[in-house]
């Protein structure tokens, strides 16, 4: 066994895990607060990447230097994705707040298809080249073939986002209100918390992390298309279920477990069966530990 090869696989797995984590957060937060699997979440991530592409292309055409392009593209992608996330909830989920869960789920799948086809129409069905927004510097001279600068940036950015999010959820007024709302909406509103506002904030935060994920993966792979959100979205969903849906640390843990095991599996067994492997993991979890690694017991109190 070649240690350098294994190291590369592990680092690749961490990179993948980071992206999954950024998207899985949105799934798990939304599920935590309104018990909905937001199937349109992967599309928010795709829209983030497209916005990044459009803005960075326009800015580069106007001769803006690299750093400014990265900053404005990222800001635009995040703001745009947040607007989509916010509007999505208002249009497709809020009117169904008291409807059966199945109706909301179907609405979510509908929005997912709508977003895909909307981007198909507005853009193109082809893969579009995505500019390498992250400068390719050599930070680790003799080992640069093991880990690229992009991978490093992805892992570091994810770590920063995680820390900020943890601080937000654990210590701020809004964060505590989010946790309270996810545990008991009626009691939360009896204490003066505007539950609808908290739900909107949850969608906005989830969309922001998804947009960051979209930008990072697009500059890593160098190409995007309208369907990019689908598979990654589903895999991030698997990660969220793996960790225990509704749990934020669970989603991050699940994402890294999935990313690492996929990467090692691809490296040592076969890359053809990569997706099969991810879903095999999902099936196994659902059989042996339905509430996930860190999930709370699903026993319903009556």
């Amino acid at each position: 066994m070649n240690p350098e090869y294994l190291t590369a696989l592990i680092l690749g797995g961490l990179t993948r895990g980071s992206i999954y984590a950024l998207i899985a957060l949105g799934y798990t937060m939304v599920y935590g607060i309104i018990q909905l699997i937001n199937f349109a979440h992967g599309e928010i991530y795709m829209i983030g990447a497209f916005t990044g592409l459009i803005v960075s292309t326009v800015l580069t055409m106007h001769g803006m230097p690299g750093f400014g392009v990265v900053f404005f593209a990222a800001a635009a992608a995040i703001i745009y994705a947040c607007c989509y996330g916010y509007t999505l909830e208002k249009i497709a989920y809020k009117p169904l707040r008291h409807a059966p869960r199945l109706s909301v789920l179907i609405s979510a799948i509908g929005m997912s298809l709508f977003f895909q086809n909307y981007v198909l129409l507005a853009q193109t069905s082809n893969f579009l080249p995505f500019p390498g927004l992250i400068p390719d510097f050599e930070f680790w001279k003799p080992y640069s073939h093991v880990m690229s600068a992009t991978e490093l940036v992805i892992i570091v950015t994810t770590a920063i986002v995680m820390v900020l999010l943890t601080l937000l959820i654990k210590f701020t007024r809004i964060g505590k209100a989010m946790r309270a709302t996810s545990q008991d909406k009626i009691m939360a509103s009896l204490l003066g918390i505007n539950v609808n506002q908290i739900i909107s904030i949850t969608f906005i935060v989830g969309s922001a992390t998804a947009a960051i994920g979209g930008l990072l993966i697009a500059s890593h792979t160098g190409q995007i298309n309208a369907y990019m959100g689908f598979l990654v979205g589903i895999k991030a969903f698997v990660a969220a279920v793996l960790g225990g849906i509704g749990s934020i640390p669970g989603a991050v843990l699940g994402a890294f477990v999935l990313g690492l095991s996929e990467s090692v599996f691809t490296g040592y067994v076969s890359s053809d069966y990569e997706d099969v492997f991810a879903f095999l993991i999902l099936v196994l979890i659902l059989i042996f530990r339905p509430s996930g690694i860190l999930g709370r017991d699903q026993t319903q109190k009556v």
Partner: peptide, 8 residues
């Protein structure tokens, strides 16, 4: 039923 937030 008190409605304490159980995980806070």
């Amino acid at each position: 039923g008190r409605r304490i937030f159980p995980y806070l």
